[in-house]
Amino acid sequence: MTRVSGSAPLGSAPLGSPARTAGGRAPAPLLRRILLQGQYETITMLRNGEQLILAIVLPLLAMVGLTVTPLLDGLGPSRINVAVPGILALCAMSTAFTGQGIATGFDRRYGVLRFLSTTPLGRTGLIAGKVLAVLAVLFLQVLVVTAVALMLGWQPNAAGWLPGLAILVLGAASFTALGLLVAGTVRPEATLAITNLLWILLGALGGIVIPAERLPALSQAVVHFLPSGALGQALRDAFLYGSVNAGAVLVLLLWTAIAGGAAIRWFKWN
């Protein structure tokens, strides 16, 4: 191929071999694209210091706080046994809602969503990659929280692990849908404010770490219908008693469906 004369002093390497055979320009397989994007987003999330504080440090502090104060006394066999399921629920909210929501909001602002959707990854692959990253970070959170909790004397009901982890994934799905809904409809600064504020409000009063019966009477009725309250209660029922709270699972399914549908309908890519 001919080189155009007078090429720049920078970048003196020869141009490779563009315009290979037409058959050469194929996308990588769908699964590989999604896994790559999931891996890339996971590393990005784990490299973000603020994200790590929200995902790991604050939940661990809350767990210690709940075991040294009498807040949860009388709700179960020990403070730590009542606290840990709520802390796992808080982890899901940190990563799926606040962390992922803020990241997506700024990706939208900087055109990253638009650029990636023009590559073979596409919009569907992009969302799938984000969901994968949320699950990967949540897995690491569960490992860290479980390790610290076991050291603090946590004795989970063995029959609770299977339903508990399934419910945790469902909770992550509903919070991911809510996070995407916020990130895709308002400015990133507003996403930052809304998701952080809701993290604090739902964390303190949403029935996630503090069960409904310890909340003011006014909020008790509402809490069961919030994704935070439903996830917290369902995880406590699983890890304390090994039982599945069908009502709470239904509430989570509804939130996932409604927020997911709304996000599909109203998400703006630019």
């Binding site: 320009r25 194929a26 996308p27 769908l30 694209r33 990005t44 490299r47 973000n48 700024f106 990706d107 900087y110 055109g111 990253v112 638009r114 650029f115 990636l116 023009t118 590559t119 073979p120 990854l121 596409g122 692959g125």
Partner: peptide, 22 residues
């Protein structure tokens, strides 16, 4: 069109579209 077409088309957006932390 799907990924097959997107693999044959390159796009440079006006605002770049690259993640700031990358």
């Amino acid at each position: 069109a799907g990924a097959g077409l997107r693999a044959r088309v390159g796009v440079m957006l006006q605002d770049g579209g690259l993640p700031p932390s990358a």
